[in-house]
């Protein structure tokens, strides 16, 4: 086999390994205003309005981009429509993730904890490549509203 052929195989192999990392967030309407990746010590939150417009969501995954088939965590908070954080009891909130094109979700259920004005969720695991959606549901009385963000994971 020629040296150039080996080079091509090596390049392809390296390319395939590189594909294990996720792509940055890609949001579908009506979800996120995705932000550019920032240094790990100054992550900017991803933002989305609730699908019914009742509140706003700020969410920071860690690590970011979200890795494929590796545990990750995130923190989020809810804001009113003027941008003020909502002091919402934890029991009124739920977080889940789904692959809407496949009709299934994660194989694990994250635990939610409140700390420093943020709600921390861990662990999460996106075990398949493709489009994932993270849902944050807020219940007030008899009504539950949802905000969501979309992620393409490779």
């Amino acid at each position: 086999m020629k040296a150039s052929t080996w080079t091509w195989i090596l390049c392809l192999a390296l390319g395939a390994c590189g594909g294990e990392e996720t792509q940055p967030v890609a949001a579908d309407p009506p979800t996120a205003e995705s932000t550019d990746p920032k240094p790990a010590d100054e992550p900017l939150p991803l933002k989305a309005d609730a699908n019914g417009g009742g509140f706003r969501l700020e969410l920071i995954p860690s690590p970011h981009p979200i890795p494929l088939n590796r545990d990750f965590s995130l923190r989020f908070r809810l804001l009113d429509n003027e941008g003020k954080p909502l002091a919402e009891p934890l029991k009124h909130m739920a977080l889940d993730a789904d692959m809407p094109e496949h009709g299934h979700g994660m194989k694990i259920a994250p635990v939610l904890e409140e700390k420093d004005g943020w709600i921390h969720a861990s662990p999460l695991l996106f075990h398949m490549p493709g489009l994932w959606e993270i849902y944050v549901d807020r219940t007030q009385g008899h009504v539950t509203e949802r905000a969501q963000l979309s992620f393409k994971v490779y």
Binding site: D28, P29, P30, T31, N51, G52, G54, M99, P100, E101, L131, E133, Y135, G141, H142, V143, T144, E145, R146, Q148
Partner: peptide, 26 residues
Amino acid sequence: RIDPQAPLNQHLGAAAWVRRVNLRAL
């Protein structure tokens, strides 16, 4: 989340839940 004027195609995962009203909680 489907454009009614778009060419006919499948739109997997096009539904986004806005809210749930729990009538039992009334």
